[in-house]
């Protein structure tokens, strides 16, 4: 496979992530901040997001398993996850967190459990898609090409 074809594939794939709402404009900002001084900025931030999310989801699962659910603690965890997802532009995860916090405020345990499943699902999807995108980038670099910087589909 030649470099041009891989670059077009990367562009189409990235475009679909935005069109399907998995990513929003904040992710583009991360890409803009990546330069020769900070070549791996996006990967670093996204890796941090993965680490934080795994820990937070585990803490949430534990907190909601208790007999007397501490909704303040649950809310704090969801708030953290919402901040992380918002910072990297993981839009659907952020929206799921917003719904989650509403049910925390209502202290609705069953709804919180459903929201937790929803957040986990959205997180897994966006994680897989980002990992796929990063693999495409690695293939392009390995083939001697550069990551495309034109994002003219946004407009």
């Amino acid at each position: 496979m030649d470099v041009g074809q891989m670059q077009r594939q990367w562009i189409d794939y990235t475009k679909s992530l935005f069109l399907e709402g998995f990513l929003d404009g904040q992710f583009l900002q991360l890409q803009q901040l990546q330069d020769e001084n900070n070549p791996d900025f996006v990967v670093e931030v996204v890796s941090l997001f993965f680490e934080d999310s795994e820990r937070l989801l585990k803490d949430l699962t534990f907190a909601l398993d208790q007999n007397g659910v501490d909704f303040k603690k649950v809310d704090a965890h969801v708030h953290q996850l919402k901040g992380s997802s918002s910072s990297i532009g993981a839009q659907r995860v952020k929206n799921a967190c917003i719904a989650f916090r509403n049910f925390c405020e209502e202290q609705n345990t069953d709804a919180c459990l459903r929201c937790l499943q929803q957040v986990k699902q959205e997180y897994c999807i966006v994680k897989n898609k980002l990992e796929t995108m990063f693999r495409l980038e690695q293939q392009i670099v390995a083939a001697g090409g550069s990551i495309p910087t034109e994002l003219s589909f946004i407009g």
Binding site: Q32, L33, N38, F49, D52, S87, I88
Partner: peptide, 16 residues
């Protein structure tokens, strides 16, 4: 910022 991801993004913005 106690949120690692947000902290990293803001830092990147300012370093830029």
């Amino acid at each position: 910022d106690d949120n690692g991801v947000s902290r990293t993004v803001t830092k990147g913005l300012l370093m830029h």
